[in-house]
Design a protein around this nucleic acid. Structure first.
Lengths: 299, 299
DNA sequence: CTGAAAGCGCTTACAG
DNA sequence: CTGAAAGCGCTTACAG
C-alpha cells in the first residue's frame, strides 16, 4: 500500500488546474431547471462531457438575466474550459466579455444576435406550420397562441410561424388571441384564463412551450373545459405525460438529447481552435395525438 | 475606469481557493436528474446555497453506484466545502472516505447506515398507511405494490409500510403482487405489465415513486385499462401533471423544497463545527384524488 | 534517470 | 499605511 492510499490522498484539482491552466470542466447555463426540456438536455450534455473526460457545472438562470450573469461570472472565475449557454433573454455584459475573451462558447436552443458563436438548436417553423395546417384542416378559424417572449429566438420564431401559417391559410389570428407569456407555467395558466374570458374565445389554442402548456391545461381542467370538444389544444415540446392525459396531447417534439450532445461535442473542437464548427440546426416534429378535434365537434 | 475594468479582469477563483482553503462551493449528488423530485430538490438546494453565498456543483449518479463514486471523487478533488448526497444504493468507498475525512456531509432523502451524518428526509410511513386504509375502505383486497429497491431506505420503508398496513387490516399482499423496480420509469412499466398478466391480477396498485408511477400509467394507458374502474392506482411523489390526467392521480406528496433547503442550510453549521445538527425528518402527505375507486365499481 | 526549483494567481502576515 | 515576500499544491522544464 502506497502512502497515498494509506492517507487517502486526493490530488488537489485546484492546484493542478492552476498549474496546467485548464480545469477539465465545462459550464452549462440553462434558463430554467424546472423545465424538463432543459433538464433532459442537461443530461445529454453531461453524458457527452463525461465521455470526453470533462465534468460539468450547471447554472440555472431561472429565466432571470441577473442570475444568468451571476452564473456566467462564477463559471468564468472558476475557469471552465468551455461554456454552453442558453441565454434567458438578450445579450448581457458577461456574455459579451466571454465572447471577446475567446473562451469557447456555444449557444444551445436560444442564442443572441451580435455574438459570434456556433448555435445548436431545433428549428420549429415547419412543425408549427404543420400544426396550423392540421388545425385549419379540422375547420378551426379562431386560433389562439400562448407565445413565449418575442425577444427570445424560439419565442419569436414560433410566434411568427404560427401567425404566418394562419394568415397564409386565410384565418389570421386576431390580436386579442395572441397572449405573451414568459415560458413559465404561471404565465400559461393566466394566458389561458384570459383567452377563456374573451367574447369570442378561441376554438384552438397553441402553447409555445411545455411549461406554459402545462399551465394552460391546468386552467382548462379547472374550468371543466372539454378537450377537444370545446377547445382543441396543442403544445410545443413533448413530455412523457402528454400521452397519458385524456385525450393525449398533440405536441411538437424536439430532438432534445441530440441537441445537448451536439453542443457538448462542439466544445473540444472549438478549444483546439483549428476549425470553426458549423452551427447545428435540427428539425422539430409534430406528433399528432388526440387533443385537436374538428371544430364544434363532440367531446 | 480602473485597469481591472478595462482589461475585463476576472479574479482567478482557483488561485484564490488554493490560498484561502475554501471554495465557497457546495456539492450535491443526486441519484437521477430525470426525476422531477430530485430536480425540484436540487433547485431548492441551489436557492438556499446562493442565499448563503455558495455556488453548487451537481452530480447525477443515474442510479449507478459507479457514477456516484466518480462524482464524489471529482467533487472532493475540486475541494467543495460541503457535500449533500442522496446515495443511489449502499455505502461506497468514496463515501466512506468522505465521512472519515471530516468534510461536512449531509444525506438527503436517501442515506446509508454506518456513516455518521445528519439526514434530511420525509418519512413516508404514515402516508403509505393512510393510502392502504383508503384502499381497504374502498373494498380492495388484492393489493399490489411496485416497490423501489429494498436496499434503499425509502424503498424499504415504503414497501414495509404498505405490506404491514395491508397485513394489519387483514388483506395481506400476495408475494406475486410485490414487484421490485429500480425507481426508474422502465421498471414501473414492466412491473405493471407483469401485474396485468397475473391470474389473479390486482384491483389496486401502488407505485413507490413518481417515475415508476409514470411507467405504470403508460402500461395501463396502452393496455386500455380503465382507472379506477378496472384498477385503482396511486403513486408515491406528487408531480404537477398528476392532477391533469383523467382521472387525476391519488399521490403521496413530499415537502420537496423544504427538504432541499433544510439540507443546504445544515452545511454551514456543520462547517462551523460547534454543534452537531439534528437530522430533519418531515412528513409526507396523502393527496386523495380520483384514481382510486370502489372495487368492482364502474369507470 | 532523479530530484530540486520555478511558477500558476491569489491572500495574508510581516518588514519597512 | 504601503509594498515585497511567502506559500497554498500541483506540474514541468531543467540541472545534476
Amino acid at each position: 500500500m502506497t502512502s497515498a492510499e494509506q492517507l487517502k490522498y486526493r490530488p488537489n484539482a485546484l492546484a493542478r488546474s492552476l498549474r496546467v491552466e485548464n480545469t477539465s470542466t465545462l459550464g452549462l447555463v440553462i434558463p430554467n431547471v424546472g423545465n424538463p426540456f432543459f433538464t433532459a438536455m442537461a443530461r445529454a450534455v453531461e453524458d457527452a462531457a463525461r465521455e470526453m473526460g470533462y465534468s460539468l457545472m450547471i447554472g440555472n438562470a431561472d429565466e432571470d438575466p441577473g442570475k444568468e450573469s451571476e452564473y456566467l461570472n462564477v463559471l468564468m472565475e472558476k475557469r471552465v474550459d468551455g461554456l454552453i449557454v442558453s441565454p434567458a433573454r438578450a445579450i448581457s455584459p458577461p456574455l459579451n466579455e466571454i465572447a471577446r475573451s475567446g473562451v469557447p462558447l456555444v449557444f444551445l436552443d436560444r442564442y443572441v444576435k451580435g455574438i459570434e458563436a456556433p448555435v445548436v438548436r431545433a428549428d420549429g417553423r415547419k412543425a408549427v406550420d404543420s400544426l396550423v395546417e392540421h388545425l385549419v384542416d379540422l375547420g378551426h378559424e379562431r386560433l389562439a397562441i400562448i407565445s413565449g417572449p418575442p425577444e427570445t429566438v424560439p419565442g419569436r420564431e414560433r410566434l411568427d410561424a404560427f401567425l404566418r401559417g394562419a394568415e397564409d391559410r386565410g384565418v389570421p389570428v386576431a390580436e386579442e388571441r395572441v397572449k405573451i407569456g414568459d415560458f413559465r407555467r404561471e404565465s400559461g395558466l393566466r394566458a389561458m384564463r384570459e383567452l377563456l374570458e374573451l367574447n369570442e374565445s378561441p376554438t384552438a389554442v397553441f402553447a409555445a412551450n411545455n411549461l406554459m402548456g402545462l399551465g394552460a391545461l391546468q386552467t382548462l381542467s379547472r374550468a371543466g373545459v372539454k378537450i377537444p370538444g370545446e377547445i382543441s389544444f396543442a403544445s410545443f415540446d413533448d413530455v412523457s405525460w402528454f400521452e397519458l392525459t385524456t385525450p393525449s396531447v398533440t405536441a411538437i417534439a424536439q430532438p432534445t438529447a441530440e441537441l445537448g450532445a451536439a453542443a457538448a461535442r462542439m466544445l473540444p473542437v472549438l478549444m483546439e481552435g483549428r476549425e470553426r464548427p458549423e452551427s447545428v440546426i435540427l428539425e422539430a416534429e409534430l406528433v399528432v395525438r388526440g387533443s385537436c378535434g374538428r371544430v364544434g365537434g363532440a367531446a
